[in-house]
Design a binder for these strands. Structure first.
Lengths: 214, 214
DNA sequence: TTCGCTAATGACCAAGTGGTCATTAGCGGT
DNA sequence: ACCGCTAATGACCACTTGGTCATTAGCGAA
């Protein structure tokens, strides 16, 4: 357990929205916001169980006591820091024939733009550690996405296929955004989208490929 | 942090190979073995960063001081507990036309049989927590598997396709063996193999599907 | 039997955790 | 100018972590 070695220190102090501060800014909303931003960053970097309130406080430029005052417990801070997943239903609607491509594009677009503090990576990290709170939230979030896919999928075995889509995207996410190593992590977004399209086609449109038995 | 709630307690004491013991068995090899078994179990359950030496010791029926005596540091215990990945090269050799099916079957067979203390799940859990040691080992293990796939794949973009295969299997692993929730986790092994075969076909044999060339 | 070797123990440590709470100090209203 | 309200602080708590080490006790050899 060496000392430390990741992340960046705060620029001046109170990293988030707010005017440059002297000391004891006394601005509860700004503090709350800074704490939440810091929590999201720490969550992304370490997952729930290794995110410490003191580190969140330090990153936000406040004391850990203030974090407790605002959020009470670590779990409540966690829940407050995780934003709800943005809707992807809209991006999926359209011609069924090009659905694989749209799923791939929607995924890549989302991950590539919102990477900085997307809760998905944080939740994967947390859920992997077998943390009950994180696992619960992760499942809820996955179910949300699955519902969107379920709406647009057609044919047999919808549940299984929806879950397979989710699994594929999960694997790519893990490889590209969590481990960040290997060809999947290195390829350009457009290339990734192309590969994903090809990969998803047989699951999204089982008729055009080989349908897996009974 | 409540008391406990997972796994099973030791039957009498000294869970692993060894005759029923009174007290202070004084059998270094049996102790080592019991500690390693306990470490693997804890690792599978919680990942590296949340596996504690004291819990490992308790599960093995020894004191945490003995664990330190045998392995010195937590990291060395970790390295000793992770067995090397078994070779899968043999299972992959054969007719290229049925390669997707063989890859799927080899994966399912391995995961379904060795699930109890397969290091893969433990490593995923650990690597997800951003633990440097675990991430290093995880990468090494993945590279090992990738090499096996690379040997049997043909056609363009081999590196990218190999990595996509690994990502797909990783996603399924995460969904089925880490989170253990959803349709992928619930389906029978044979069904999973069928779905995986269909899923992998376009990446393994890009000619027969749609090649994502540029 | 005695005795050396060392496996195994358990008390101890410094560091770090989440959480509590009395105290301090900034701001708005009067 | 004063003062109440409360945001913010920092000392403190019980507890857990990985790691150290003097002590104890089992076993084999003499």
């Amino acid at each position: 357990m060496t000392t430390n070695g990741d992340g960046d220190a705060d620029p001046t102090r109170r990293a988030a929205t707010g005017p440059p501060a002297g000391r004891r800014r006394r601005d509860p909303e700004a503090s709350r916001g800074a704490i939440l931003d810091a929590a999201r960053a720490e969550l992304n970097a370490h997952g729930y169980s290794r995110m410490t309130i003191r580190r969140v406080a330090a990153r936000a430029g406040v004391t850990h006591g203030l974090v407790m005052r605002h959020f009470g417990t670590k779990e409540r801070l966690f829940l407050a820091a995780i934003p709800g997943p943005q809707r992807l239903g809209a991006a999926l609607a359209g011609d069924p024939a090009t659905l694989p491509e749209r799923i791939a594009r929607a995924y890549v677009d989302r991950m590539e733009t919102a990477d900085a503090d997307d809760p998905f990576v944080a939740l994967i990290r947390s859920a992997a550690a077998n943390d009950p709170t994180a696992t619960r939230l992760y499942s809820a979030m996955q179910e949300h996405s699955r519902a969107a896919y379920r709406d647009v999928l057609d044919g047999p075995d919808v549940d299984a296929r929806v879950d397979l889509i989710a699994a594929v995207l999960l694997g790519v996410t893990f490889s590209r955004y969590v481990i960040r190593e290997g060809a999947v992590a290195a390829m350009a977004p457009a290339t990734l989208a192309e590969h994903l399209t090809a990969l998803l086609r047989p699951v999204v449109l089982p008729a055009s490929g080989t349908a897996p038995g009974d």
